Amino acid sequence: MKLAGIHHVSAITADADKNHDFFTRILGMRLVKKSVNQDNTSSYHLFYADAVGTPGTDMTYFDIPHAGKTYPGVSSISNTGFRVKSEDALLFWKERFVQFEVPHEKIVERYGRKTLYFEDFEGSRLMLVVDDGKGIPYGEAWIKDEISAENAIVGLGPVKLTVRKSKPTEKVLEEVMGFTLAGSYQSGVEDSPDILVYTTGAGGPAGEVHIETRPDLPMERPGRGSVHHVAFRVPSMEDYPKWEELLRAKGFTTSGLVDRYYFKAIYFREPNGILFELSTDEPGFDTDEPIESLGEKLALPPFLEPRRAQIEAKLRPLSINK
Rank of each mutant, 00 (worst) to 15 (best):
A299F: 07
I195T: 05
Q310Y: 10
A249N: 11
A231T: 07
V234H: 00
L181C: 14
R233N: 08
A152K: 08
G133S: 04
H104R: 06
R269G: 02
E109P: 00
L181D: 10
S76D: 09
A231K: 02
Y61S: 07
N40V: 05
G73R: 01
G28P: 07
I291Y: 14
L247V: 10
E208F: 09
M219A: 00
E282L: 10
G81W: 06
F22Y: 14
T169L: 03
S10N: 15
L294V: 08
P290H: 14
L91A: 15
T54L: 13
D286V: 13
P218G: 02
M29N: 06
S75C: 00
V227H: 01
N321F: 10
P137V: 03
K242I: 11
L300Q: 04
H229A: 02
V9C: 04
E305W: 05
D194T: 04
V130E: 06
L275V: 08
P290C: 12
P158E: 07
S35C: 10
T200Y: 03
P241K: 05
N37Y: 11
T57I: 12
T287A: 01
Q99V: 09
S293D: 12
F92W: 11
L298V: 13
E212P: 00
T13P: 09
G135N: 09
P235K: 04
E296I: 11
S76E: 05
K165Q: 14
T70R: 08
I195L: 00
G295L: 12
L278N: 06
D288W: 00
A182Y: 09
F62P: 14
D39Y: 03
T57S: 15
D216K: 03
T253D: 06
P55I: 08
A182M: 13
N19R: 10
G203M: 11
T24P: 09
V176D: 05
M127P: 03
K2E: 15
Y48L: 11
A149W: 11
S86H: 03
Q186R: 10
G183D: 08
K314F: 02
Y71E: 13
A89T: 07
V176P: 01
Y44W: 06
V258F: 05
K242S: 12
E150T: 12
P205V: 09
G123E: 02
Y61G: 05
Y117I: 14
G133W: 05
S42T: 15
F22E: 08
L300K: 05
M29P: 06
D131K: 04
E296W: 10
V32S: 04
